[in-house]
């Protein structure tokens, strides 16, 4: 973890409510895709946790969906704005465990960390299939970006306006050789993907309301097979076999 100032370089609107942000700053604390940053916003007491979409030595890319005042403020920041950021939080995905036929499954804004993950897997010679789910065609984003990585790309929309009609799980069922998932999205999606019989194992990114984001407050703990874990520090990535659904969230 590192606390430092990042400068907003540019913001690009991707859909009605989703934006891409590029920030420059010291990214040395970031060690794995699937980690997140925790951003201080003027006038908000708590920081806002946002997944790292991608990063280089000097730059950080985020995808932000406006859902409330904090995220609205974040996407309205003008280039040059300095933001106080805690970077390199959480455990991140471990692509080395993904086997020969991994599928990256994302729903909505949950696709953000899968982009940096896909790029690193490609660089390491892995060939992940990418399955992305959106509500409808107008909500879809980052399709070209994923395609240009050379990944096999499967799309599902709930209304059928793009790709397969249905959910990401419907796409994954069509690629039965994929037996390992790396997954991020809303809870119902995580749950549905988790229950796919073709998967031998997988990694799932969880969300929780956070007090600190770095393991100090126990605000984000959820039950797992191995006891309570902090989403911010022991997660956000949990492994298939340790996840328990009954009480959490």
């Amino acid at each position: 973890m590192k606390q430092s100032l990042f400068t907003l370089e540019h913001t690009r609107q991707l859909t009605d409510d989703t934006y891409e942000l590029v920030l420059s700053g010291d990214t040395s604390a970031i060690t794995a895709p699937g980690q997140f940053v925790n951003i201080q916003l003027p006038g908000r007491f708590l920081r806002r946790p946002i997944s790292i979409c991608n990063w280089t030595d000097q730059a950080l890319m985020l995808l932000v969906k406006v859902v409330g005042d904090g995220t609205r403020e974040l996407v309205r920041c003008v280039p040059g704005t300095e933001l106080d950021v805690l970077s390199g939080l959480g455990n991140g995905f471990d692509p080395a465990r993904a086997g020969a036929h991994p599928v990256l499954a994302g729903g909505g804004i949950g696709i953000a960390p899968l982009y940096g993950l896909a790029q690193r897997m490609r660089d390491a010679g892995q060939a992940p299939t990418v399955a992305l789910g959106f509500r409808s065609a107008k909500d879809a984003f980052y399709l070209e970006e994923f395609a240009s990585l050379g990944c096999r790309l499967l799309i599902a929309t709930e209304d059928g306006s793009l790709g397969t009609r249905g959910f990401v799980t419907d796409c994954i069922r069509n690629v039965p050789e994929c037996d390992y998932v790396l997954c991020c999205g809303p809870l119902p999606m995580l749950k549905a993907v988790h229950s796919l019989p073709q998967l031998t194992d997988g990694q799932f990114s969880f969300e929780a309301r956070m007090g600190c984001g770095f393991g100090a407050c126990m605000g984000c703990s959820i039950p797992t097979r191995d006891g309570y874990k902090r989403v911010c520090k022991d997660g956000p990535i949990l492994y298939k076999e340790e996840i328990v659904w009954r009480t959490c969230l």
């Binding site: 007491f45 708590l46 309301r209 007090g211 703990s221 959490c248």
Partner: peptide, 23 residues
């Protein structure tokens, strides 16, 4: 102690609420 169910944290103007439940 395992503490309370999620969510345990809420934000408010100039502060926060917590119901960690002594985990």
């Amino acid at each position: 102690r395992l503490g309370n169910p999620q969510p345990r944290i809420a934000e408010t103007a100039g502060g926060m609420l917590n119901a960690v439940g002594l985990q």
